[in-house]
Design a binder for these strands. Structure first.
Lengths: 205, 205
DNA sequence: AAATTATTTAACATTTTTGTTCAACAAATT
DNA sequence: AATTTGTTGAACAAAAATGTTAAATAATTT
């Protein structure tokens, strides 16, 4: 086999385009053109736009799944540090995949079949992660290290502040064209860590 | 004039469709059909899909603008209560417009001309609001009522946790089909208030 | 070298979506 | 009553997007 450099290239460009514009907004001819292959080549490897999209979505969900596994694989350390590590890792994951969440959320809302896919792929592993975090938190709460709290809620807080940091980034930059992304991300990550630390702090409320 | 009930109806349905599916995903014939008017009627009032979309976007940005004004018009009370009020009002606004933010963010990212529109429409008033909040916070910080902090950051925290509560709601419900939205929203709002209160609490860190 | 696989070009077919036109009719306004 | 405005239907045109085909060539594998 020729190792299909072009096929890979098509998929790469398809990812970019679908992630930016969604299924409805992306154009197959544009994908082919940007990938530097002929229009027919695209259909040679992927019969339909839908099929191409499925591959992209499949890869992205896979990636999401792996990222959950990675993000949660934290060696032994005090639970507070673990939570900090969680926030930072999740933030880092997002900084490498800034428009993945927006993409998934949109497609899942617009096209129910992909809600199913998400449910199948990403959910079981996420449930395990929540259960793990809950055990950690409960144990630490008994020692008074953190306040008693729901792991799912904490996770949602983490995801929402991190996620939103990336959602607004392009808007902020359209407002301040000279904005320093590096600095922004750095500051935001710190802010988010701080916010989550307050959240689990046992001395409050 | 006949007071254009149908024209209004078209706009209503167009809002629903564009908000759910975005510009690229929405279909003019479907809009006409759901509005209970003929296909030709749609083009009679709105020459093109783009024009129809502009009306919707215009209205939505207007609404956003007004909501900012409303959300921030808080009578005299201690600043901590003001912040709580802010969170609750913003949450309420979102509960009435659950997919507005997602819509705006998407279109603004995909179509730069609407980033301009957003900048023109919503930004000046938001800047005022941030300035107001900053003054309030600074005054309160001097009295030790809240911790010294950046108003823009606090606002971003508020928006992100509230916003995300609504983003995930449809996903959660696809996971747990029997989920009680009412209860979920109520709990989430409380959680978000709590999170923000921790954030401004002067006794932490 | 032969066979297979990858790739292009360029035309074409199909489908989907948008937009137009026109004749007729209904409703409201003057 | 006459006129303007709203409305439909149905056909049609035009544009945009997807998908197909076949012939020719290049590259790779056997």
């Amino acid at each position: 086999m020729k190792d299909n450099k072009k096929q890979k290239r098509i998929l790469e460009v398809a990812e970019e385009e679908f992630l930016m514009k969604g299924f409805a907004g992306a154009r197959t001819v544009e994908i082919a053109q940007k990938a530097g292959v002929s229009h027919s080549m695209l259909h040679y490897y992927y019969k339909t736009k839908e099929q191409l999209f499925e591959h992209v979505m499949g890869e992205k969900l896979q990636q999401l799944k792996e990222s959950v596994a990675t993000v949660f694989m934290i060696e032994d350390m005090p639970v507070v540090e673990k939570v900090v590590e969680l926030v930072v890792r999740h933030f880092e994951f997002l900084s490498e995949n800034p428009d993945l969440p927006r993409f998934i959320i949109n497609e899942v809302i617009v096209r129910p079949e992909y809600a199913e896919m998400l449910k199948r792929e990403a959910l079981p592993i996420l449930k395990d992660a929540v259960a793990w975090l809950q055990r950690e938190l409960d144990a630490a709460a008994k020692e008074g290290e953190v306040r008693t709290m729901d792991a799912a809620t904490l996770l949602m807080d983490i995801v929402s502040v991190n996620f939103f940091s990336f959602i607004v980034a392009p808007i902020l930059s359209s407002v301040k064209p000279d904005m320093d992304f590096q600095a922004y991300y750095h500051a935001r990550c710190q802010e988010n860590v701080q916010l989550i630390l307050n959240r689990i702090n046992p001395d409050i409320k």
